[in-house]
Computed example of a mutant assay.
Amino acid sequence: MCRSIKTLFNFEPPATAEEVHAAALQYVRKLSGSTHPSQANQEAFDKAVAAVAAATQELLDSLVTKAPPRDREEEEAKARARAAERFGTPAPS
Rank of each mutant, 00 (worst) to 15 (best):
E19G: 10
G33K: 06
Q26Y: 09
F11G: 06
G33T: 05
A48P: 01
D61L: 07
A83S: 08
E19Y: 09
P14E: 10
Q42T: 09
E75I: 12
A51Y: 03
A83I: 02
L60T: 11
F87L: 13
A55H: 05
H21E: 15
L25S: 06
K30P: 00
N10Q: 03
D46F: 01
P68M: 02
L63A: 07
A54H: 14
K30V: 03
A22Y: 03
E12K: 15
T56W: 03
P90W: 09
A83Q: 08
V64D: 09
V52E: 03
R86W: 05
Q26S: 14
F11N: 05
L60A: 10
Q57G: 01
S32I: 00
A40Y: 04
L63N: 03
M1N: 12
E85N: 05
A67I: 01
A55W: 07
P69V: 04
Q26V: 04
L59I: 11
E12G: 04
K78G: 07
L60Q: 09
A54L: 13
Y27V: 04
H36M: 11
G33S: 06
F11I: 04
A40W: 10
A79V: 13
R86G: 03
K6G: 04
S38Q: 09
A67G: 01
S38T: 15
H21F: 12
A67Q: 14
A23M: 02
Q57Y: 05
V49N: 08
R29D: 04
N41R: 15
K78N: 06
T65I: 07
T65D: 02
A54D: 15
K78E: 13
L59S: 10
A48N: 10
A17T: 13
P37E: 03
E12Q: 14
S38W: 01
S38N: 08
E43Y: 03
A23C: 10
T35L: 10
A48W: 03
T65Q: 09
K66H: 07
K66W: 01
I5Y: 08
T35M: 11
K6D: 07
K66G: 10
R80Y: 02
H36S: 12
Q26E: 13
L8T: 03
L25H: 07
P13H: 00
E85K: 14
E75P: 05
A84C: 04
E76L: 13
N41M: 12
P14F: 00
S34Q: 15
A53Q: 15
R80T: 02
V20L: 08
F9I: 06
E85S: 08
L63K: 10
E74M: 12
R3A: 05
A79M: 11
F11R: 09
A91W: 07
D71E: 12
Y27Q: 13
A55V: 03
E43D: 13
P14Q: 11
S38L: 05
H36E: 13
A83M: 08
E18S: 15
K6M: 00
S34R: 15
A24K: 06
P68H: 01
S93H: 09
E73S: 14
D61I: 04
K47H: 10
A54G: 06
A17L: 14
F11Q: 06
A50I: 03
E12C: 11
T35E: 12
D71F: 05
A40Q: 15
A51N: 11
D71C: 11
P69D: 08
K6E: 09
Q39D: 13
